[in-house]
């Protein structure tokens, strides 16, 4: 609440004053509502809390305490976090290498495609056809394209050969998987990005665009100077959505990079095998790894949070 910052009458109510006033005005219904809300919040938070406490427990503490109970002083350790960070750090870098470009490119291409499908004047029936084809792309499941996708990259577009000059620079040719992931995720992301941007552009003031055209701006300039700068909130939505989607995707990485031992292995691939061995599951390590791997998506949410709210509301 921005209550106190918005007040301009110089009100001097202290926190305790306000608290007392709130409590005095509370009815039975209010109290009931808060109890329910607290219970619901607890219900949703328990798994996260359990994961967090598990990640800082020693092996014996995991066996001896309940999953959601905090470890005692003797059962506390940060060793698992350390191990997780060590194991995942190189994967984080690799994931960034494809998640960031793929997110930005798909958002940008989606925005331009949506612009082309809404603002310019061309035949409505053609627009509808192109849009229908693009939207259809959203509904193709990942699993359905796995075989054609591997065939495409192994037979039709052999990037390993095409990019030989890159490998000559001393970069391991395993990184071809990263390039393939970028292209694949961009292709897969364009339909949903286009749809989201199109919905947003439909609500833009037509008169404003017309006004810009009359002011002498070409289509390209209208996008550059009017539509693009006003797309901020929708870019936040699309960036968050795409980044989370691409960062967390395991299927394409399994198919295109496949081994966790590869120098180009993304974080999800390493995480999948983290803490599992013949002796059983290392729960603490798995939890620490999961939290560590989720940090970038969390950061993106926090970073674009305000714009996200605005874009979702639009």
């Amino acid at each position: 609440m921005k209550d106190d910052t918005l007040r301009t009458d110089g009100g001097t109510a202290t926190i305790t004053d306000r608290l007392r006033r709130n409590v005095e005005q509370m009815t039975i219904e209010d109290a009931g509502l808060y109890v329910v809300l607290l219970l619901a919040a607890g219900f949703y938070l328990v798994p996260i809390e359990s994961g967090l406490v598990t990640s800082i427990k020693t092996g014996t503490a995991i066996v001896q305490t309940a999953p959601f109970a905090p470890p005692g002083p003797s059962g506390f350790t940060l060793a698992k976090w350390q191990a997780a960070v060590e194991a995942l750090l190189r994967g984080m870098g690799n994931s960034m290498l494809y998640a960031v470009p793929a997110t930005i490119i798909s958002a940008f291409v989606g925005s331009i495609t949506a612009y082309g499908l809404t603002i310019p004047d061309w035949k409505q029936s053609y627009k509808a056809l192109v849009l229908a084809l693009i939207i259809a792309g959203i509904f193709i499941p990942y699993q359905a394209v796995l075989v054609p996708l591997t065939q495409f990259w192994s037979q039709w577009a052999q990037l390993t050969d095409l990019l030989s000059f890159v490998w000559a620079l001393g970069i391991p040719d395993d990184y071809v998987g990263i390039v393939e992931l970028v292209v694949t995720h961009v292709a897969y992301g364009i339909p949903i990005c286009t749809l989201l941007f199109r919905t947003y552009y439909k609500t833009m003031s037509e008169e404003m665009i017309e006004s810009a055209r009359l002011d002498g701006a070409t289509l390209r300039r209208v996008y550059r100077r009017i539509v693009f700068p006003l797309s901020g909130p929708m870019f936040a939505v699309v960036l968050i959505y795409q980044f989370t989607q691409i960062w967390n995707d395991l299927l394409f990485t399994l198919v295109l990079v496949s081994t966790e031992s590869s120098p180009a292995a993304p974080v999800v691939l390493i995480l999948a095998g983290l803490g599992t061995s013949m002796e059983g599951q290392d729960f603490a390590l798995r939890m620490a790894g999961a939290f560590f791997a989720a940090l970038p998506t969390l950061a993106v949410y926090i970073f674009f949070g305000d714009e996200f709210a605005e874009g979702v509301a639009a």
């Binding site: 003031s205 008169e207 017309e210 009359l214 002011d215 002498g216 701006a217 100077r225 006003l230």
Partner: peptide, 26 residues
């Protein structure tokens, strides 16, 4: 030049930028 009922100003630009826009573009 056209003046619209809704004014159709560019919301992300200052008044100065709104007024310069047409001259810059045309």
């Amino acid at each position: 030049a056209m003046v619209f009922q809704s004014y159709a100003l560019y919301p992300h630009m200052t008044v100065r930028q709104n007024m310069s826009f047409g001259l810059e573009e045309s």
